[in-house]
Design a protein around this nucleic acid. Structure first.
Length: 466
DNA sequence: ATGTGC
């Protein structure tokens, strides 16, 4: 009796050693090689019936291997990605298409689409829309859960707030930077802080204090608060055509949402150890598990928290201006929704994509010095009723710091009479695709209703200073 | 995206 006999049975790895050990004991007990081999075949065929005795260790190892193989089979990627439509393909880098292809190979994926602002992200590309069946992918939503836009249009002429006034308001009523919150005495309350969901999970309870301090702040990266002129060519929601003063903000769920995203993507990865490495960051949570339900609850709360951030920023500003907005629009662009697609309910992930159901209003910003658009969705089915969430990056942050001359950046702002508070060269307009081209690539997804031109922009100071 | 990090 030796390893070759055992290997012939199809045993692999550590199981061979375990089988040999057991075989030696049976040989000592007087059994023939043929008898032992037939016993081993019995263990292989039904390891669950050998919980005790000389074959117990081998049986346990076989069972563990079986479970792992089943997990692997469940998580196996399709050999080929499902088909999906791409808007503005000529504007999209190959890496983003490769990431979308991987996403469309997941066993849980059903329908997908790529928006014209798409670029590479963690897991699902930014600008990716993905419908899955009964499962949610934390990195299909993104790190900044609930990242969103809000526009307030005031029934006041664009010239009624000068640059100096706008700078003062932005400095007084907005807060930027990683880790930054409002001082205790400056904080405002919001009902979102009383949501019972905060008490439903230890993680959420733990993050409540941070959420309290950061409510009504704007964070870092591409987040902004800006005053500008809003041009409305045709009446909308009772607002007459005209050129108005307006406030546009881009903010998310801050440290709270980031910690939720990190926690649940690590959890998802740990639950899918057999997932192909190329799809590691696309690990999902089944919605019929406790983990999936917990993520859904935390994600929903993060989304509401992010919208509350905007409400507070706009509320502070409206009070300071003494104006009530004549038109208010907001939308989340990093979130998952339950949505009926072709008669079936799927989980639709939009990671940097604007919901664009028929008639639904949304906001698509360009850059710190380029126009933002008020749009109305056309409910295009192949896009899963979506549109781009912005212009999309043309180059990464490090590439932008190398490639863009500071003088060119400043000239771009000067030509458009944009005053910038904070803001790094990694967010320069030249780092983004031309938003006009991105809008032109999705005329079948959204109709443009109005245009916002930034004039005084506040962003996080970042690594560079203008 | 975030006062972080396989």
């Amino acid at each position: 009796m030796n390893g070759k006999h055992i290997a012939k049975l199809g045993l692999v790895g550590a199981d061979i050693g375990l089988a040999l050990t057991a075989a030696n004991l049976r040989e000592d007990a007087g059994l023939s090689s043929d008898d032992i081999l037939s016993e081993l075949a019995g263990v292989q065929a039904s390891p669950a019936s050998y919980g005790e005795g000389v074959y117990a260790a081998l049986a346990a190892s076989l069972l563990a291997r079986q479970a792992k193989d089943e997990l692997h089979a469940q998580d196996a990627l399709r050999p080929e990605p499902l088909g999906y439509r791409v808007w503005g393909r000529e504007l999209i880098e190959p890496g983003a298409l490769a990431q979308m292809n991987t996403a469309m190979r997941l066993p849980i994926s059903r329908v997908g689409a790529l928006m014209p602002d798409a670029h590479v992200g963690y897991g699902l590309p930014i600008g990716g829309v993905l419908a899955t069946e009964n499962a949610v992918i934390p990195y299909g939503v993104g790190v900044d859960i609930g990242c969103s836009m809000r526009l307030s249009v005031y029934a006041a002429p664009a010239a009624s707030l000068d640059t100096r006034g706008a700078v003062g308001l932005l400095q007084k009523h907005t807060r930027f930077g990683a880790g930054v919150g409002w001082d205790r005495r400056e904080r405002l309350h919001h009902d979102v802080l009383d949501d019972p969901a905060w008490d439903a999970q230890p993680l959420l309870r733990h993050l409540h204090d941070k959420a309290v301090s950061q409510l009504g702040t704007s964070g870092s990266g591409n987040h902004f608060a800006e005053f500008g002129t809003f041009t409305l060519p045709a009446a909308q929601d009772g607002l007459e055509p005209g050129i108005y003063l307006a406030l546009l903000t881009h903010s998310g769920s801050r440290g709270f949402g980031a910690q939720v995203a990190g926690h649940f993507t690590r959890l998802a990865e740990s639950l899918h150890p057999q997932l192909d490495p190329s799809a590691k960051k696309l690990a999902w949570l089944d919605l019929d598990t406790q983990e999936g339900q917990d993520y859904w609850q935390a994600m929903t709360l993060s989304g509401e928290y992010a919208l509350a951030n905007h409400e507070q920023i706009h509320g502070r500003m409206a009070k300071a201006l003494g104006e009530t907005p004549a038109l208010s629009v907001s939308n989340s662009h990093n979130l998952a929704w339950k949505q009926v697609v072709g008669g079936r309910e799927y989980i639709v992930h939009r990671k940097g994509a604007t919901p664009a159901a028929s008639g639904q209003l949304g906001l698509i910003p360009g850059s710190m010095a380029d126009p933002a658009y008020l749009v109305r969705g056309r409910g295009q089915p192949d896009s899963l009723e979506s549109a781009s969430h912005g212009a999309g990056r043309q180059m990464g942050r490090k590439a932008a710091e190398k490639a863009i001359a500071k003088a060119d950046w400043k000239a771009y702002l000067n030509e458009r009479h944009v005053t910038l508070l904070g803001g790094g060269i990694d967010e320069a307009p030249q780092a983004y695709k031309r938003v006009e081209e991105v809008i032109a690539a999705q005329t079948d997804l959204v109709e443009v209703l109005g245009q916002f031109q930034p004039q005084v922009v506040r962003m996080d100071a970042g690594s560079e200073d203008i």
